[in-house]
Design a protein around this nucleic acid. Structure first.
Lengths: 345, 345
DNA sequence: CTTTAGCACTCTATCTTTAAGAGTGCTAAA
DNA sequence: TTTAGCACTCTTAAAGATAGAGTGCTAAAG
């Protein structure tokens, strides 16, 4: 839908974007003239830049300053101009060493480790949403007697979540009776996603089992609390302070707004969930983001899956002036890693 | 060791501290004169303040400004002048409602909830170190067969930690054999703190059980990883952004240093551990803190226990200009709450 | 018709100057 | 011992001055 630019305009736009990403200073015509392979004079460049501004790709902070890319400019750059970024050898080394250093761990460890790698490799703030518990399938439930009065309820899902809770067994219950009840539950619930275990289903089961109800009251509480958990999905943050190194965040007020956002997990969750589309990697520039708080930022997200089932999303958040090429390569590398290491566990 | 001040000097010092805590502006003699019950003139106050400065309790930012309390001044205020703070009715309401709203939860939930209450009631940044896993006593270990090939190892401590891990049971093992091994382990380990379960002890047990060793290799891995966990003690933060509201942190560089500190859990852990003394509540003002990064801050910590056994520590971190009275009351309230709600679970 | 050199103009950022205000310290009187 | 009065100091905010970067326009050159 956007008319393509001619070669020269593209070169100039690219030069402005690349330069601005690097220096964070408005780019003047002389600077472009120097870096431009075609030996054009600054005056010619000026005319072209003036055109690009009128077309909406560049913006002037004030009359006598250089140009900076507009949101549209970045978009055009990402879609058409950016060379398909290869991971630099250095980056590749850093990433693969810090990924392989840790052996295979619990799922949560893998996730946390990924934020760390992502933020340190991109110098931005990174966020990761882990596999969603509520979309996992019920695998099995066990009740493990601890001593006379207490038992441990264990709930296991297909994605490897293990929830447990100590419950009081107020009344003695014979081993076989307990076993009977538990296998009844397993039979009824097997394969359902946690989403599907609704309160009404639980109530129905309760009716069926009404005789043993009192003993198992607390097992049901675990189930119900697991349902509520959907509101508490954990989003992990890495490199929060990185965003402070960006010159666009030198204002204390902006910093406060940003950090405030970081403390609100539900919002972060929403931001990430909005972006888990079919595509592996999504780039949202400025106001392309739904969330008001990050309308001045770019969010690059990647989705990782097993067998086409979406497990979670990771993101890099920074100012629109971001090293798109580099971040995207790093992101792709990490998504690959997660796809691989989660499917093998 | 510090010579007590006479009444009038105490009144003036208190007035300066209270006023400065409230306004964050240097306090002049006229301001003190107005708020001082004894109807002294500003000139008299000036003389006294001059004395107090010479004695080290007050400081002048520059020649023609009011006075602000020095570290020594705050210390004298906390030790001698501060009225024993009662929780205001409002505060009490906010705290007790947000504590009781949540029913008894998992230990981790209680901890996290406490940071939230603490930071929002004090408008400062709060940090909590939960019960230390390595100092908990081994209670029991169970192995729960899942299906033919896999089992779930569960490790339970006296303080309510539950660790678990799915392991592969490569070889079939009869139910009774498994039971035998597990009860042998429980017998050997019961009552030991995780600290005491050293690698050498594990190796010894491995020798005893060498015949079933292969099957249980991974159970031992859980044990060993639990030991390593000491390096990963979790410190929870609440209200990180509150510290940005303090005028003393209007400098971006200070903010960065502070937030950077917040991302380094081991450091936070050290800071909190240094303060878990016999006293319930400890106030560390400015350079009284060991850690260089918070030499311009005040840290107020509270320790919670069960039956005289230290479980964990919570802290409030802010500028030395802090509402000591209020924070201490809130802290005391929360320590009581934790003592109570953890001992009953 | 396109490109380029030259130049006046604009706007920002920085530094200096100025003025107002707050608070002190000192002195002398009560 | 306390207080009123006053000169003095220092900070902060506003106002003015200057340099530099970059533009847009015009007119000449290719």
């Amino acid at each position: 839908m956007v008319a393509p630019l001619n070669d020269r305009k593209e070169q100039i736009l690219r030069a402005v974007v690349v330069n601005y990403i690097k220096t964070a200073e408005p780019v003047g015509s002389r600077t472009v003239a120097r870096s431009n392979p075609a030996g054009l004079s600054s005056a010619t460049i000026r005319n072209e830049m003036s055109d690009l501004e009128e077309m909406g790709y560049l913006v002037q902070p004030h009359t006598s300053a250089g140009r900076i890319p507009s949101q549209l400019g970045y978009r055009y750059y990402v879609d058409n101009l950016m060379e398909p970024g290869e991971l630099s050898v250095d980056d590749e080394l850093v990433i693969s060493s810090s990924l392989s250093a840790e052996k295979m761990r619990e799922i949560e460890q893998i996730i946390i480790n990924s934020t760390r790698v992502l933020s340190s490799a991109t110098n931005q703030t990174s966020l990761i949403m882990g596999p969603q518990f509520k979309k996992s399938a019920f695998h099995q439930m066990r009740i493990l007697p601890l001593d006379g009065k207490r038992g441990l309820v264990v709930l296991i899902t297909d994605t490897g979540f293990i929830k447990n809770k100590v419950i009081n067994l107020d009344q003695q219950l014979s081993q076989s009776e307990l076993h009977q009840v538990v296998s009844y539950l397993n039979q009824k619930l097997y394969g359902l996603t946690i989403d599907q275990v609704t309160t009404s289903l639980i109530n129905e089961l309760k009716r069926d089992l009404f005789r043993r109800l009192e003993i198992l009251e607390q097992a049901f509480i675990l189930l119900e609390e697991s349902l509520k958990e959907e509101k508490q999905i954990r989003v992990f943050l890495g490199g929060t302070t990185n965003i402070l190194n960006q010159p666009e965040f030198k204002d204390v007020d902006k910093i406060r707004r940003m950090l405030n956002l970081f403390e609100q997990e539900p919002l972060l969750f929403k931001i990430l969930e909005d972006n888990s589309s079919e595509d592996d990697i999504v780039v949202r520039i400025g106001s392309e983001n739904e969330c008001d708080d990050i309308k001045e930022c770019t969010l690059i997200t990647g989705t990782y899956r097993i067998h086409d089932k979406t497990l979670g999303t990771l993101g890099v958040l920074g100012p629109t002036r971001m090293d798109y090429s580099r971040v995207i390569s790093v992101m792709r590398r990490l998504v690959d890693y997660l796809n691989q290491s989660l499917s093998s566990s």
